[in-house]
Amino acid sequence: MRLRYPAPMHEEDDDSALFRAAVGKVDPLRIDATPPPAKPRPRPAVRREAEPSGPGGMAGLLAESPDAVLLRGDASAFRRERVNARDWQRLRRGQFSAQDELDLHGANALEAELLVARFLGESRDAGFGCVRIVHGKGGADGVPVLKNLVDRLLRQRGEVLAFHSAPPAQGGTGALLVLLSRR
């Protein structure tokens, strides 16, 4: 069935009339004098790398405060007490060769969590000492979701001795070099 419209008297009048007929009766918007409350924005986390805290070793601000977040350019860093200063410096400079890599681009948080757990288990079983995890720098409002997720996950894993953001040539703050304990 085809809809038929009456022939317009004037082209401009016809468009306006059709629009008014399609929309129907409308009520004007009420304008309140008070604006809506602003959404809270996360504050940048202050990262510390040189202070030992508790039995877990070098716990950064993320481990101390669940509300703290890393922003796009922030470096991720974590070190257990049993990692010596020389190895920590080598890791920070990117002087360890990554023996395997996991790229999380395109993964959602749940997929990333499963992929990281499987990757770390397989890497440790294979006897790898250092691996790279690429989480990317993207996220909503400058807060990279996967970066913060991976940072928190790695701190909880017993086989992770230390991790640090990769040097710029290896992914910078969008990737991590991870030292693993031997089996």
Rank of each mutant, 00 (worst) to 15 (best):
S181K: 13
R20L: 15
R48D: 13
V69I: 05
G136E: 02
R47T: 08
H164N: 04
I31V: 12
K137E: 07
V145E: 07
L110T: 14
L179S: 04
R48I: 15
G73L: 13
E64Q: 12
L91V: 08
K137C: 06
A33W: 06
R4E: 15
T34A: 13
L104E: 03
A109N: 07
N84V: 12
G172Q: 02
A22Q: 00
Q95N: 09
A33I: 01
V134W: 07
H164D: 00
G24P: 04
V83H: 11
Q170H: 08
L177Q: 10
D87A: 15
R48E: 08
K25H: 15
T173D: 01
Y5V: 12
A109H: 08
G60H: 07
R183N: 14
D151N: 07
V131G: 01
D15C: 14
K25P: 14
A22H: 05
R20C: 14
I31N: 08
T34M: 08
R47G: 07
R2C: 05
R30N: 02
N108D: 15
D14K: 13
V145R: 09
R48C: 06
N108W: 10
A68L: 00
A98G: 03
D13S: 15
A162L: 04
K25D: 15
S181N: 08
R30D: 11
S97Y: 11
R2P: 11
H164S: 03
G24A: 02
A85N: 12
M1A: 04
L71K: 04
A175R: 10
V131A: 04
A33C: 05
L62S: 01
E113S: 15
R4Q: 14
E51F: 15
V26Q: 08
F163P: 01
R80L: 03
A33G: 09
D74V: 06
S65P: 00
F19P: 02
L161H: 05
R48G: 07
P37V: 08
